[in-house]
Amino acid sequence: MSQPEPTSGSSTSPPRVALFVTCLVDLFRPSVGFAAIKLLEDAGCIVEVPSQQVCCGQPAYNSGDTEAARRIAKQVIETFCEFDYVVGPSGSCMSMLRKDYPEMLKDDPAWSARADSLSQRSYELMSFLSDVLHVRVEGISYAGTVAYHDSCSGLRTLGIKAQPRQLLSDVAGLELRELQDAETCCGFGGTFCVKYPDISVKMVSDKVGNIDMSGADTVIGGDLGCLLNIAGRLKRLGKTTRVFHAAEVLAGMAKGPGIGEAEKT
């Protein structure tokens, strides 16, 4: 990966970036976290992983327990306030930090300004690499026909659409295919997928149908929730389509088992 252009003309010291790991990466796919760290470090950042971090609070927020979500938001603000940037491999979690924290704390004089300040320094990984650091991917290859899945929060709340495609376009051997109904939700929706399994499965089946139709052999996305959902449905149907987080592919770390695949023995 090439050196990024400096983000501001005057400062030459590398940015201190805190990785927001996200619960799902922590629990299901640590390799995404390591890939994110590699991408950020290769781009010249000093990366730290605050150990006090847990979750962004979205499950509580979206379930209506705003008070619990506020408690968690304050904990996140406290944990991450000292860094130049907070970057996470999820459009959904980072939307919480960018859009929802300021909204849920706007009437709290002690926290409102702090929420705004964190919001302005919080980025989803690929938009950070692309919009802030202007990196170009170099020396990375992936042999495959890839469909990129746009996750809804990233797409609509954070405007992430071109950035991952642009980054992936520099990966050697990778051919991008666009999905029909690319901007339609995959049916994950956090707790929705277990509260309304029939509808969720119908939605992910439609998504998998479009993936099949695209002829792609790999699905890549920026949110592990969607990817677990899509991979889970693909596997249930016995499909061989592989599923990776974009960070893994961009970091050249998509060499092991994809999501839902067994370790090779």
Partner: peptide, 16 residues
């Protein structure tokens, strides 16, 4: 709720 129509991908080994 998850597994009626989908498999659940297994965790990789330990937490991040």
């Amino acid at each position: 709720g998850w597994t009626t129509g989908r498999d659940m991908p297994a965790p990789q080994g330990t937490t991040f």
